[in-house]
Simulated assay, not measured.
Amino acid sequence: MAVCRERSEVSAVEVEHRDASVWIRLNRPERRNAYDVEMANAMITALHGAAEADAVVITGSGGSFCAGGALGQLGDPDPARLRELFTTSLRLVDAIRACPRPVIAAVDGPAAGGGNELVVACDFAVATRRSTFGQTGPRVGSAPVLGATNLMAVQVGEKRAKEIAMLCRRYTADEALAIGLVNEVVADDELEAAVGRWLAEIHRLSPRYLEITKVSSNLWWNAAKDNMNAGLGMLIQAIGSEDMREGAQAFLEKRKPDFRGGRRAGAATDEREPS
């Protein structure tokens, strides 16, 4: 089969048409492909434009899949801009689910925070052995309400999903395979070949009935949407909180956060004040 590749780049997101598939590549390796509003919108546009393809592949560049939303905005947040990032992130994961074509996460390297939630949102996931998975929310002053606190429980079980979402542990690719977060793990240099096999298999199937099957399988995603909106509302109300600032600043400074330090200082001040 001849390979036809057309590439365009919009705000650090490369969209490449390979025969009947659309590849969306995040291209900000210096920040582990953490996305901003412009990048999220570029992905949404590419997903909306892929209705005539056989399938969509989301991947990253530079040895990382995606570190989620850009955390630099949390340390000194602009409420309007951060609200836009949060709401656009919801539109992004919903666009993955609303896309009539199967969406494959091709993971090479860390899938962290919102990047792990992108894996949750995708229909299939293929990962290299060096890849890692996990949430970052409570560790960095946030909460993973766009998949990890709701839909992920359907994929990996409630107790395991709470462990992943609340404790922010890291999981190897083999561990992710064992719990059902990914479909296949391959050698580090075989990712594109493995994804190609998935695409070839999809190409032999009926697009119409694949779409019907995908729409029908969105039962649990649709049930989680109200929960996602509620969680997003709480995140927006918490913009600028002490925990958000401390978590983001600690992450950027590569140190452990001290979420209780401010509370201890405040309590000590209250004790010294005369009654």
Rank of each mutant, 00 (worst) to 15 (best):
V156E: 05
G113Q: 09
E117R: 14
L151S: 11
S131H: 11
A40S: 14
E84F: 10
D76Y: 13
Q73M: 10
R97Y: 04
L90Q: 09
E158H: 07
A95L: 09
L47S: 03
A98P: 10
R101S: 12
E52W: 10
D76S: 12
C66P: 04
D36M: 02
L82S: 07
G72I: 08
G157M: 00
V37E: 06
I96G: 04
D36T: 08
F86W: 06
D78F: 06
R129W: 00
L82I: 07
A53Y: 05
R91G: 14
R83A: 10
G137L: 02
T87C: 10
G109A: 04
D108Q: 15
T149I: 08
A125M: 00
L85K: 01
R129E: 05
A50K: 07
G134Q: 00
V119K: 05
L71K: 14
V57D: 09
V156H: 03
A153D: 14
M39F: 07
A53N: 05
A161L: 12
A112N: 12
V126N: 02
E163K: 12
E38F: 00
T132P: 04
A112L: 11
G134H: 00
A40M: 14
L47D: 03
D94T: 12
T128L: 03
A105F: 00
L146F: 06
I104D: 02
S64C: 07
P110A: 01
L82W: 06
N150F: 01
C66K: 09
A127W: 03
N116L: 13
R91T: 15
Q135G: 09
D36P: 06
A153H: 04
R160S: 15
G63Y: 13
L74C: 10
V107D: 05
H48G: 12
P138V: 03
G72W: 08
C122W: 00
R97I: 12
S142E: 11
L85D: 05
L85I: 05
C66V: 07
V57F: 11
E158D: 07
E52N: 11
V145Q: 12
S142A: 14
R101A: 11
G114Y: 15
G141C: 01
T149D: 11
A95W: 09
T128D: 00
L151Y: 10
L167A: 12
V119T: 07
L118Y: 03
V156F: 05
A42E: 01
I164F: 03
P138G: 03
A121L: 03
N150K: 06
R139T: 06
A70D: 14
A53M: 13
F65I: 00
R83S: 13
A67V: 01
Y35Q: 15
A106D: 02
A67R: 05
H48M: 10
L71Q: 12
